[in-house]
Nucleic acid binder design. Structure first.
Lengths: 238, 238, 238, 238
DNA sequence: TCTTAACCGAGACGGTACGTCAAGTCTTCCT
DNA sequence: AGGAAGACTTGACGTACCGTCTCGGTTAAGA
């Protein structure tokens, strides 16, 4: 299956533009800011909305330009100024939709990354883990998502609201989807009932993030197999 | 134990100021830049050193100010301008020593982080791993090193020369020091001879970096124990 | 009389801000730079002007601050940084309007100096010359214009585009206005038809600039009379 | 004849290095500074001078480099740093001899300009004036002295001590030398006894400086003749 | 012959200002 | 009322020189 990774920010358009209809101002908005598309009118018609509707064309152009720049030069090279120029859009059109660089980058990333990550159900823990990790590795090595992820995780270190958004909109959904793999294994009696699924997931994905960010070793297929086997059996010979 | 983590950038002066004696100019220098004190006269006396010597006082003041700012506001808040002001030093005095923010931050981090990480030798793999991971967790949670590490790893994503320096001056020395733990266990026959030490280290530290950067779960003592036990025995009940 | 000394940089707005609407970039712009407001849309309405218009308030504040500093500390003391601070304006707001210090100083000078210099028409060459020189002397000794002029002429020596701008926007208009004095005298038959008006002007103003810059003697009323009489009658007794 | 224009700063070495033996310090020295070589021991042996004597080779190299740079890029481009580099000399070697850029430039100029200007004595005022002006024009148009003079006069506007030095060491000697031309003419009864020599000199050289600095017209031979004739006879036909 | 004082080159020092860039906000006219 | 444009303030960047200050090393004169 293909559980859409991210809880779509509300209604119709799959996670993407954080169309926050945000008259947010000043410092107060700052923290709520990077949250992105948390709330959105669920009604498709959106009744009492006056004035010129937002251009979906602009949405697309902005996200495309952002993804492009993010991939080419990393998040550092994705200046709002350049995004606006490439998208043929005014800067305020961007700021009307996203509160800051980070939020835009996050949405661009999600657009690319979402729904690439199945939560497989093969019947055995070992192959479920292998499939999950392999899918992640493929996504970050074969698509622009890898560079974007690294840059975004970096930015999240310095931008607390973005950090929150990252956890809520990327990490948590992703972990929830994966957690069921472990829970199913417990239900099946494959592993001990007391096993902490979070810990298992950390040992599964932690090494992968580690190699992605530090580049000390490649994210090869061998790596995937090695991690899963070690995690299943431990280093101690049995 | 106590192996100074970082190969001191040349001979005598303990890892710290990347006193590269760098008349580096132009594009060629750009990449070699963040390398830090890779090369240095091997002669211990450094005979023909002309001109006024660099002030060690300034070295200290700069690194102290950098560490302070790095801890307070993260790497983003560590502007060279502010470092200079706090250290009571001209900007050029900083740029004479380090080619850019990242390189300075890296040295400030190493000053703080070095020699905090012993490579323990208790006789058993399990307790060696536990000690190593616990030391790391302690360093990043109880000292400024944690925030510095996160910020630096972030910056390394966008600044390739800094990335190289990070790998060469932080990751590699650290991993080398830890690799011997696994190798000793193999020698002792505690674990299978074919075991890949790098993979073991990734499963040991990967989860820790993962939690440090994503903050999805705390870096508790329980975590340390859990990781090591899982790594030793695997999830599959035996 | 009263002919506004300087050809107003385009049409409506009296010589002052070199609102070059300059998206000038790169080396090519370098020379055209200090020209000031040479070209400007000739249409009075300037129909398709998009984006936020430049703040006239900022124009005024910048020129006022520049004039102030120029007068207080000479051109050397007029740093862009300080002008920006005094005018309560960002540096880029200045650089958007003027390409460099010199150009700004030139405009500040013109704002002060313009329309202070009538081209008198009294009916006799001697008294016309006397009036013209006296007006100049008064302007440079009684107003800030003197210090500004000296500093600007100095800067023009080292900054070729500024030199060009100086000639085009200050010297030529001024000389043209004064040349008619001599031409009228020729028409009246007061002096020989072959007389070179430029030479006459050089003998009239040259000594004045000389004293302004070298300060070897004062720019007194006696001086004015002396120069004019000598120029009219020569040293040889008749 | 060839009256050495400048009162040689003391003894043996023709105006050149301002060997001020200056342990000058602090603000008090500031004004006396640019004065250059005012005092110097007249005794050739200089008895009680201990320590290594100053290198005359350095003197020469510095002045040569300064002249070169002054000519090439104007005074703005003559940075002490570059002079030191070209002369193969330490910066302090320069600062030991001259208190600042201006003073060095002044000496470099004098080295070039001195003794180029005869104070002719042909027996007639008209031809004396013509010879004097022609010599000046030749010096500033055919040798580097012109660019140096302009740059120096410029710098003197912003650097008061340099301004003083300029007047004392360049203008006054030059004017004194020329004043005798006028005084001789008065003695000869060629012109009226009440004639102010300074005014005459201003009308002679003022136009020349004017054209040198403003470049509005060339400093041609015609110009020389025109100025002298106008000065002799006036504009009014007789 | 040995001090000792002043020089020498090199180059680091604390500063100031430069001109550039991008951030996020504000203001205009147009659709 | 949204959109494109382009102004605005702010703040840091990395560079270039300033004039001063050490360094280790000459180079004489005086003891």
């Amino acid at each position: 299956m293909t559980g859409t990774l991210i809880p779509p920010p509300a209604g119709q358009d799959g996670a993407v533009p954080a169309n926050d209809r945000q008259p947010a101002k000043g410092a107060a908005a700052k923290d709520a800011a990077a949250k992105g598309a948390a709330a959105k009118a669920s009604a498709p018609a959106e009744p009492g909305r006056r004035g010129r509707p937002r251009s979906e064309e602009a949405d697309r152009a902005i996200l495309a330009a952002a993804t492009e720049l993010l991939t080419e030069h990393g998040l550092a090279g994705m200046s709002i100024e350049e995004v606006a120029a490439r998208a043929g859009v005014g800067k305020s059109t961007i700021y009307r939709r996203w509160p800051n660089r980070g939020a835009l980058a996050l949405d661009a990333f999600l657009t690319e990354f979402s729904s690439q990550l199945p939560a497989p159900d093969t019947g055995s823990l070992r192959s479920d883990l292998r499939a999950a990790l392999r899918a992640w590795v493929r996504a970050v090595t074969k698509t622009p998502a890898g560079r974007m992820l690294a840059g975004l995780l970096a930015e999240a270190q310095r931008d607390p609201p973005l950090g929150n958004a990252w956890r809520e909109r990327v990490m948590e959904p992703l972990r929830s989807a994966h957690r069921v793999i472990v829970e199913r294994a417990i239900e099946r009696g494959e592993i001990a009932p007391g096993t902490d699924p979070d810990l298992v997931l950390d040992l599964l994905f932690g090494p992968a993030y580690h190699r992605l960010l530090n580049r000390h070793r490649p994210l090869s297929d061998n790596f995937v197999r090695g991690v899963v086997d070690l995690l299943m059996d431990g280093v101690t010979p049995r």
